[in-house]
Amino acid sequence: MFRLRSADGNVIELEPEHGESVMDTAVRAGVDGIVGECGGSASCGTCHVFVPEEHLARLDPPEFAEEQTLGYTAVPRTDASRLACQVPAADVDGAVLDLPERQY
């Protein structure tokens, strides 16, 4: 289980299925704020999220494609930025991930 918090403060709790990414879980649940236009190939940047510092250490570092895409997100990246399609939901169990104010 993890939570997504929108820019206006609304929080939704999500229960991922085995092996899902954060993006997969959010799209399946119809969460506003996660678009996932490219279907999870780390090429569109429409699933940008901010991961809490204590959970970033659990994640593998971003691969080249994710690093490149994060440079072109609608809201500037921070040290906490990741693409939800590249974040295994199991690795952020218990976390509250923040959504940017927009994805486009």
Rank of each mutant, 00 (worst) to 15 (best):
S43E: 15
S41H: 08
A89E: 11
A26T: 03
V35R: 00
D93G: 06
L59P: 10
E13T: 15
D8T: 13
Q68D: 14
E67L: 13
M23F: 12
L14C: 08
G40P: 02
E13A: 14
V49I: 15
P61M: 00
D91M: 14
T69H: 07
S6E: 08
L97Q: 05
V87D: 00
E20L: 14
D60R: 12
V75H: 02
Y104E: 08
A29L: 05
A26D: 03
S81T: 06
S6C: 03
V35W: 03
E13L: 00
G30E: 04
H55L: 05
P16F: 15
V87I: 15
P100K: 06
R28G: 07
L99T: 06
S21N: 09
G45Y: 05
E54A: 04
E13V: 06
D60G: 03
V96I: 12
E67V: 11
L83K: 14
V75N: 02
A80D: 09
A65D: 10
Q68T: 14
F50P: 14
D32A: 15
R3V: 03
G94S: 08
M1F: 05
L70Y: 01
G40T: 05
R5A: 11
E20I: 14
M1T: 10
C38A: 04
C85S: 11
P61S: 02
S81Q: 09
D79T: 11
G71F: 07
L99Y: 08
S43G: 09
T69M: 15
E53L: 04
L83H: 13
R77V: 04
R28I: 06
A7F: 10
L59N: 08
V27A: 02
D93W: 06
H18C: 12
R102P: 01
E63H: 11
E66H: 10
T69A: 12
G94T: 13
E101P: 00
A7P: 05
D91P: 01
V51P: 05
H48K: 11
M1Q: 04
Y104G: 08
R5G: 06
A90L: 09
A26P: 01
P61V: 00
T73P: 04
V35D: 09
E13Q: 06
S43R: 09
A29Q: 00
A7E: 13
S81E: 12
G9H: 10
L56D: 01
R102Y: 08
E101L: 04
E13D: 05
V87S: 01
L4Q: 08
H48Q: 09
R3P: 03
L97T: 04
V49R: 08
C38L: 07
T73F: 10
H55Y: 15
P61T: 04
R5C: 07
I34F: 10
M23I: 03
D8E: 11
L83Q: 10
L4A: 12
V11W: 07
H48N: 06
L56I: 02
G19L: 14
Q68L: 15
I34P: 02
Y104K: 13
L83I: 12
A80G: 05
E20M: 15
A89C: 15
P76A: 14
V75K: 01
T78A: 10
A29C: 02
A42T: 13
